[in-house]
Write a protein that binds this DNA or RNA. Structure first.
Length: 185
DNA sequence: ATGCAGATTGACT
DNA sequence: GTCAATCTGCATA
């Protein structure tokens, strides 16, 4: 499978979030390979989106949202969890990223189970903090270019049939924006 | 300098 | 449903 090109991410952040559903996130470490189909995303834009990390301008943490599209924006939150985003925006915005909220595991499921702990066999990658743990994604992958097949990248996948749009999870502002997207199963 | 809320999760009631 | 785990950025002083 071929990595998605830069131009895929040079589009409106909300469209990109919708279009990422069904694509495949791939993680390589040494000889091992893990992958999963993206089944839930959320768009976070810029100065028109009060829930976005970029809303109040550029900081050291959110700098990736202002930089090259198609790269990873990874942040640490609640003192415990990493969340992974893909930088995506069109030319009208200075910042934007798509949060990957859930994956359907495909390759390397045994390694994912090991990373997540046997107790969490159910719910391997069905949450933003869970999937980063399952795939060993941390701030080491901050800014990683996802358009080249290296340690972390995104490939095309089968088209998705039905998509459900709703309000984003866990945010207190911007609740009128239906920028959460998930694949109906 | 200090306080607090947060793009979460797992354990527990 | 409630709570603790505990890091970062921002508002307030």
């Amino acid at each position: 499978m071929k990595a998605l090109s830069r131009s895929f991410y040079r589009k409106d952040t909300v469209m990109a979030a919708r279009n990422l559903l069904g694509k495949v996130l791939v993680r390589r470490m040494g000889r091992s390979i893990r992958s999963g189909i993206i089944v839930e995303t959320e768009a976070y834009r810029f100065d028109d989106d009060p829930a976005s990390h970029a809303f109040r301008g550029r900081t050291y943490r959110n700098r990736a949202m202002f930089e090259q599209v198609g790269c990873a924006y990874v942040y640490f939150t609640y003192g415990m969890h990493y969340c992974m985003n893909v930088v995506a925006r069109d030319n009208s915005k200075a910042a934007g990223a798509v949060l990957i909220r859930a994956l359907k595991p495909v390759l390397g499921i045994e390694i994912m189970v090991k990373r997540r702990g046997a107790v969490a066999a159910r719910g391997l990658a069905n949450g933003p903090g869970k999937l980063t743990q399952a795939l060993d994604i941390t701030t080491e992958q901050y800014g990683e270019d996802l358009t080249v097949p290296g340690v972390l990248f995104i490939c095309g996948g089968d088209p998705v049939k039905d998509v459900m749009a709703g309000p984003r999870i866990g945010v207190r502002s911007g609740t009128d924006l239906m920028w959460n997207f998930k694949v109906l199963q």
